[in-house]
Amino acid sequence: MAEARPAFQYAAIAQQREAATLGMWAFLATEILFFGALIAAYSAYRVSDPAGFAEAARHTRIALGAANTFILLTSSAFMAMAVELGSAARARSAALCLAATAALGLAFLGVKGWEYVLEYREGLVPALDFDLARYGPTAELFFLFYFFATLLHALHLAIGIGLTGTLAARFARGRGPREPVLRLVGLYWHFVDVVWIFLFPLIYLVGRSG
């Protein structure tokens, strides 16, 4: 691998890479608090009306949610593969894995979009066509959180897909960007997966037992 020179404020390239890694983890910490505030609000209301939340959550489609979770977990595996291959200078294989990651991400968005369409048809979208008489105000609150959280997650995922696709194109041309760019994008992607890992039970697995 060609020896890169560190930026002027760094003494060595390793130092610069460590700094970049720390910077990305610090950024991810801010994202944990960002999504966490939404989960705190959700929790406050779920504690206040657990039965209402359970009733509302039964209208989510567990099969689609589980499928999406599977898709995202698999995309993370491909991303981890891409990082390994990228640092072993196997650029074309890395490009393929990155393409797979991005494709799975797009599949996730597709499934999500389909879910949104179905929910719209059932009158479950607050501020748009929510059927208050049929479902009640607690359900409206639950679905408000549902759309808020999943839209925000989808936005983060879309950014991830953009980054991943761009990297895939770079690697496909034979050489990826210098370290640790791929690793940092990987960290971001995995984090978006972690967010979904927590959103899945909070949205889809409430009130399923009888």
Partner: peptide
Amino acid sequence: ILATPVLAMTLLMLVAERLLHVG
């Protein structure tokens, strides 16, 4: 870095409530 994101989310929820009239 640890406190500001919480404000960001809170302000977003405030805006959502004001614009969408949801509770």
